[in-house]
Design a protein around this nucleic acid. Sequence first.
RNA 1: GUCCCCAUCGUCUAGCCUGGUUAGGACAUAGGCCUUUCGAGCCUACGGCACCGGUUCAAAUCCGGUUGGGGACGCCA
Length: 432
Amino acid sequence: MIKTRFAPSPTGFLHMGGARTALFSWLYARKHEGKFLLRIEDTDLQRSRQEYIEEILTSLKWLGIDWDEIVYQSQRFSLYQEYAQKLKQKGLAYEKEGAVFFKYNFNQIEVEDLIRGKIVFKELPKPEDVIIKSDGSPAYNFCCVIDDALLGITHVIRGEDHISNTPKQILLYKALEFDVPFFAHLPLILSPGGGRMSKRFGATAISEYRRQGYLPQALVNFLLLLGWSPGDNQEIFSLDLAQDRFELKDVNKSGAKFLLDKLDWLNAYYIKSASPQELLGPAREILEEAGVISEVSDEYLCRVIKLFQGRINRLSDLVEWAAFCFRDDVVYESDEKTRKILANKKKLEEIELLRQNISRVENFCATEIESAFRKTSEALEVKLKDLVHPVRIALTGRRIGPGLFETIEVLGKEKTLRRIENLLNYWRQNND
RNA sequence: GUCCCCAUCGUCUAGCCUGGUUAGGACAUAGGCCUUUCGAGCCUACGGCACCGGUUCAAAUCCGGUUGGGGACGCCA
């Protein structure tokens, strides 16, 4: 039975690189009907924080990654001590400067990496390493090997930055008389500039993307495409479909730069594809957080989401774009084109007539509203768009927005008429 | 400095293993169409095998080197 693991260190939030490692490792286990284990590497008691553990678990769940088992290294210190004793008894480890050291018995090590093929190490940078620190806590390579072996990990899937740890770990496996697992080293995710991920870019917490209105499906899909390709030209992947198609051999070897464009496109795609009900929860969270809404019914919010979901990249775009749906103090945008439309005061009478016609619409739906507009434009012999543009500004404050008739339907007759009246007053007052 | 990994459009990538393709797709960009506006939709265009040499009738594909990029070298993980 195949068993993989993800081993985050709770000294920081879960970020893109970690999330992708977890995802690929999870996918491999699920694909082969194996087990997926979470191991919290909290051996550094100074830097490890409970809030990070919580953030990591919450983010994994949010992405749809579940686990069969979770272990904490901080609870296994006696185990590591025990194995250090065994190595000392066998003469393979020794005490020095209050710590326990392991001497690498090295000539040449070959690793058969499942992604890269054979890797040959001709020498090691150090002849020995600490395995138990002087404070009694285990060193990374030591407890990692013990846990992977004891927990029955068959495939160690991790980032490329661990390649150089692999020969050292293999030596430890052999000294401890454990079976050596398979290794697969994923390419790294690079910042847009090509270098290491910085706090400015990508190293931002997964939870931050959630806060910015990204959907987990989009993030997962994006991460999937960063370093993996099914071979055909399929781009849209659910977790289920990926589970079906994922193969380690289809993971590529070169690092991938992390650019937001495609993530935004995928996010827009998933927002478009979702039902308004599905978006209700996350949208409400973001809008409440931003102080745009307080008490808005699910029903109304759903209608607003439906109005916008075809044209936004992130749910947080609603904060700016849909604000007019929730507050009545419409402020007209001050850009040149908008001002031009507002400056055209001879529209006053036309819009007055239009307002009357709108007020007569009984069944206040988009199609009826549209026909009121069309009738008005025919009667006045003006173009439809010459009525549409000023009304859109009256209602939303902007030139750009969703389809006007749908917008009017969502706002309802009362707000619509009042806001049009406000524009008429604006013209009347500025009539000199 | 030492060791290790990698190299196809601006970006993510297919093709490479089993040499013969008009080197395919997506995002981005540009242009067009549609339209009540648009960052939506549809269509088109632009754009790439890092370089040098070898093997071969034939190289993105196999081999060697160069250059470039990345990673590791903590009593961090």
